[in-house]
Lab assay of single mutants.
Amino acid sequence: HNLTITQGKLFFHYNPKLCLSEIHKMEEVSGTKGRQERNDIALKTNGDQASCENELLKFSYIRTSFDKILLRWEPYWPPDFRDLLGFMLFYKEAPYQNVTEFDGQDACGSNSWTVVDIDPPLRSNDPKSQNHPGWLMRGLKPWTQYAIFVKTLVTFSDERRTYGAKSDIIYVQTDATNPSVPLDPISVSNSSSQIILKWKPPSDPNGNITHYLVFWERQAEDSELFELDYCLKGLKLPSRTWSPPFESEDSQKHNQSEYEDSAGECCSCPKTDSQILKELEESSFRKTFEDYLHNVVFVPRKTSSGTGAEDPRPSRKRRSLGDVGNVTVAVPTVAAFPNTSSTSVPTSPEEHRPFEKVVNKESLVISGLRHFTGYRIELQACNQDTPEERCSVAAYVSARTMPEAKADDIVGPVTHEIFENNVVHLMWQEPKEPNGLIVLYEVSYRRYGDEELHLCVSRKHFALERGCRLRGLSPGNYSVRIRATSLAGNGSWTEPTYFYVTDYLDVPSNIA
């Protein structure tokens, strides 16, 4: 807008934040220059609390790290170098490059900038070799853009010569660093050979998330399962459950009422301010606690030095998902009996873990797994792929695949051998790939016309006998059925096997 004052003059007093240069501009645009008398524009009460600059400061050096910015700028000295009290560095987070010096300023003089007072450097006698002032900004957020400017702080001049310097606002972004852990990993099994893994992005990506790394490792069953005799009275049979499938998407929606109208769909109840505040506090606490764990609990591995020492970490090797089922080394339970199943799973520490690289999504279907087997899954978020990966501390989750139908069934015939004193040795093959492992066998036998009897055969007993022995049988026709019990439950009964026990007292003698 054009402003013209045809008559009258300007009068400025007691404006401590208004620089004289701005008042002189007002004289020019209003056409009143030359009308004012000496005392109409006070030299001592206008701009006496402001830094009124008329020179431009330029930054000469900028260096960044993930949490620091090192700045240096060209030296500046007023005509009387004693008038320079120091520099004021202003900075704040700036997602967009549209910041002005006066953003967030209120009537009390406060604003949204963080201000650092910096002492002037030592003055050199040689004007050509003056030290460049600077400042190291610490405690910054990774991968965050900051708006920065600097200006001088000078003393009051009796001659009211307006001098000083100020830089333009520059924008500097800190470097990326390792992201925080992925949030809320959930693993479920939808079949006997697959596990579905879902997660949420890290709360602090500290860069642009480029991919996720998912490692999985087959877990050995508890050692007590191999040692305890679950045929003993009072000892509860062990059981394991597989990871249940995901709930429906509708039930997972946030901010939804727990109660549904019987007449149909209901609208979600909005969260109160107290609920939102509580969630923010919980989120802040979780982030602080995660940072504490990362800094205190997890110790970084030592990389190899120039002395030739090897990095103890196993090298990563990509495998196809079809090879995942046989990740671990199978060892027989008892070496003397080769027909026992290889369900003991000690994992070799030198073995390469299978892994998958996930790009542009937060889910993965891990296939080719062994049925009813526990897996430990390790999830890392990465925001750099080359020249070397920059990934987060791992988040861990466990899951067990679903049982395989008929995996616990005894394959092959049940054979028998009759000894003296009416002892019958029953023999059968253990299931080759049971659900988890076989903890015991149930032997059901009966003599024709009598009630059915049951015998429990422990895992250890089966390994020693290759089956079991029935003792003290009365003469007669017998039928026997056997079924295995694994961590997933009972298998199917075998087809009945028949044998006849004679009275050993009636056996004919070869003595003449």
Rank of each mutant, 00 (worst) to 15 (best):
T347Y: 11
R459S: 10
P245K: 10
A395N: 07
V480T: 09
L470E: 00
G476F: 00
V358K: 13
R446S: 02
K278T: 15
R218P: 13
F289N: 08
L232V: 10
K236C: 09
G374W: 03
R286A: 14
S203Y: 05
S363R: 04
D273M: 10
E433H: 03
T415E: 01
E433W: 12
S479T: 15
V334R: 12
S348T: 05
Y448A: 13
V424A: 07
P244F: 08
L464S: 09
D250Q: 07
F462Y: 03
R483W: 00
N421K: 12
G489Y: 11
G472F: 09
F246G: 10
P245C: 10
N383C: 11
K432A: 12
D273K: 07
E442H: 07
G306S: 08
V334G: 11
R319L: 06
P338T: 11
R459V: 15
G489S: 06
F372L: 05
E495T: 11
K317C: 07
T241V: 15
N295Y: 14
Y396M: 09
D450Q: 14
V214S: 03
R319H: 11
E310G: 09
S398G: 02
H454P: 04
L293Q: 07
C468K: 07
P332W: 07
S492R: 04
G374R: 05
S284I: 01
E430M: 13
N422K: 13
V457R: 06
S363H: 04
Y478T: 01
V297C: 04
D229V: 05
S458D: 04
T272F: 05
W493A: 00
S268V: 11
N360K: 13
M427T: 14
L470M: 09
S315Y: 10
K271F: 12
V443E: 00
P244Q: 12
P245W: 12
E258S: 11
G207W: 02
Y500T: 09
S305G: 09
S248A: 10
N255W: 15
Y500D: 12
D503T: 06
S341F: 09
G412I: 03
Q219F: 13
G472N: 09
V457G: 00
P270S: 08
G467F: 04
C266S: 11
N255G: 11
H461P: 03
T386R: 14
C456G: 01
V345I: 09
G467V: 04
G472I: 08
L505G: 13
E451H: 15
V324L: 09
V334N: 10
D222M: 07
E224Q: 13
P238I: 06
T333P: 03
E217K: 14
W493V: 03
Y259A: 11
D503N: 13
L237M: 09
P332I: 09
Y498G: 10
Y230C: 10
C231Y: 04
E217Y: 15
V393P: 01
V334E: 05
I377Y: 08
V397P: 07
S474G: 06
P387W: 12
R301M: 08
F337W: 10
F226M: 09
N255T: 11
E420S: 03
S341M: 12
V331R: 11
T347P: 09
S274R: 12
D408R: 00
V345H: 06
P300K: 13
K271Y: 06
P205R: 12
E227G: 14
H454V: 06
R316Y: 02
D409I: 11
V457T: 08
L455K: 04
N510R: 15
D204V: 13
W493F: 10
P403V: 07
V439R: 08
T307C: 07
P475H: 09
V480A: 05
V297F: 13
E388M: 10
W242H: 11
Y259I: 03
N206A: 14
Y478D: 00
L464M: 09
T288P: 09
S367A: 15
H416T: 10
A395V: 09
K302S: 11
R286N: 03
S274L: 06
A463P: 04
L369C: 14
F246A: 03
F419R: 15
L379S: 01
V457M: 11
T343S: 08
E221D: 05
G368I: 04
Y259M: 04
V359Y: 11
V397R: 09
P508W: 02
E279A: 06
H461D: 14
E249P: 04
V359M: 14
L228R: 09
E452V: 06
R301C: 11
E420W: 04
R469N: 11
K460A: 11
N339S: 11
N510I: 13
Y212R: 00
R313S: 10
P238M: 07
S479D: 02
Y504C: 04
D222F: 14
E310Y: 15
S239H: 07
P403K: 11
F372G: 05
A263C: 07
C269L: 09
N477K: 08
N490S: 14
L369Y: 01
R319Q: 12
W242Q: 11
L505Q: 07
N435K: 00
Y292D: 08
K271H: 06
E227P: 11
S341R: 06
L232G: 12
K361S: 10
F285D: 07
V501A: 04
G264Y: 06
V214R: 00
H416F: 06
Y441P: 00
E442S: 10
V329H: 06
W216G: 04
F246H: 13
Y445D: 00
A395H: 11
L505A: 10
S268C: 15
E442T: 09
Y292V: 10
G264C: 03
L464D: 10
F246W: 12
V296G: 12
H454I: 13
S479I: 05
Y292P: 07
K317G: 08
L235R: 09
L379K: 00
G308D: 08
V414C: 03
V423Q: 07
D385A: 13
L235A: 09
L470Y: 01
L505C: 07
T303W: 10
T340I: 11
G368M: 09
F226N: 12
S492E: 11
G234Y: 06
F289D: 15
N326P: 12
N206Y: 03
F226V: 08
A335V: 11
C456F: 02
P431F: 02
V501Y: 08
G489L: 05
N255K: 07
G476N: 01
G308W: 05
E452K: 07
A484T: 10
D204R: 00
C267Q: 10
L232N: 14
E279Q: 08
T272M: 09
L379R: 00
P496L: 10
P245M: 03
R353T: 04
E279K: 02
V324C: 03
S304Q: 13
S203W: 04
R390T: 07
H425K: 09
N422L: 08
F246P: 08
E404V: 10
S341D: 04
R286V: 11
G449F: 12
I511F: 15
G412M: 14
K233L: 14
E258A: 11
V358S: 07
S342V: 15
E362Q: 13
E351T: 14
Y500G: 07
